[in-house]
Amino acid sequence: MPTLFDAIDFGAIRAPNRMVMAPLTRGRATTDHVPTPLMIDYYRQRAGAGLIVTEGTGISREGLGWPNAPGLWSDAQVEAWKPVVAAVHAAGGRIVPQLWHLGRLARADVSGTQPLSSSATTAPARPGVSANPNVEARPMTADDIARTLDDYSRAARNAIRAGFDGVALHAANGYLIDQFMRDGTNFRDDDYGGPVDNRLRLLRQVMERLVAEAGADRTGVRFSPNGEVQGCDDSNPEAVFVPAAAHLQSLGIAFLELRESGPNDTFLRSDVPKLGAKIRQAFTGPLILNQDYDAVRAQADLDSGLADAISFGRPFIANPDLVDRVRQGAPLNAPNPKTFYTPGSEGYTDYPALEPAS
Results as ranks from 00 to 15, higher is better:
Pro2Phe: 08
Pro23Ala: 14
Thr25Asn: 13
Thr30Ala: 05
Pro37Gln: 08
Ile40Asp: 06
Asp41Lys: 13
Asp41Thr: 15
Leu51Phe: 12
Ile52Cys: 04
Thr54Glu: 09
Ser60Asn: 05
Gly63Thr: 01
Leu72Lys: 05
Asp75Arg: 14
Ala76Gly: 04
Pro83Gly: 10
Val88Gln: 06
Leu99Trp: 11
Gly103Ile: 05
Ala108Val: 07
Ser111Tyr: 02
Gly112Gln: 07
Gly112Thr: 09
Gln114Lys: 14
Pro133Ile: 06
Asn134Cys: 12
Met140Glu: 07
Thr141Met: 04
Tyr152Ala: 01
Val167Arg: 02
His170Asn: 13
Gly174Ile: 01
Ile177Pro: 01
Asp190Tyr: 11
Val196Gln: 05
Val196Ala: 05
Ala214Ser: 15
Asn226Gly: 11
Asp233Gln: 12
Pro237Phe: 04
Glu238Gln: 14
Ala244Pro: 09
Ala246Glu: 10
Ala246Phe: 05
Leu256Val: 08
Arg259Gln: 14
Asn264Thr: 15
Ser270Gly: 10
Ile279Asp: 10
Gln281Pro: 03
Leu287Ser: 08
Tyr293Thr: 06
Ala298Pro: 13
Ala309Asn: 11
Phe312Ile: 06
Ile317Asn: 10
Ala330Ile: 07
Asn333Phe: 08
Ala334Pro: 03
Pro337Asn: 12
Phe340Asn: 10
Phe340Pro: 01
Thr349Ala: 03
Ala353His: 00
Leu354Tyr: 01
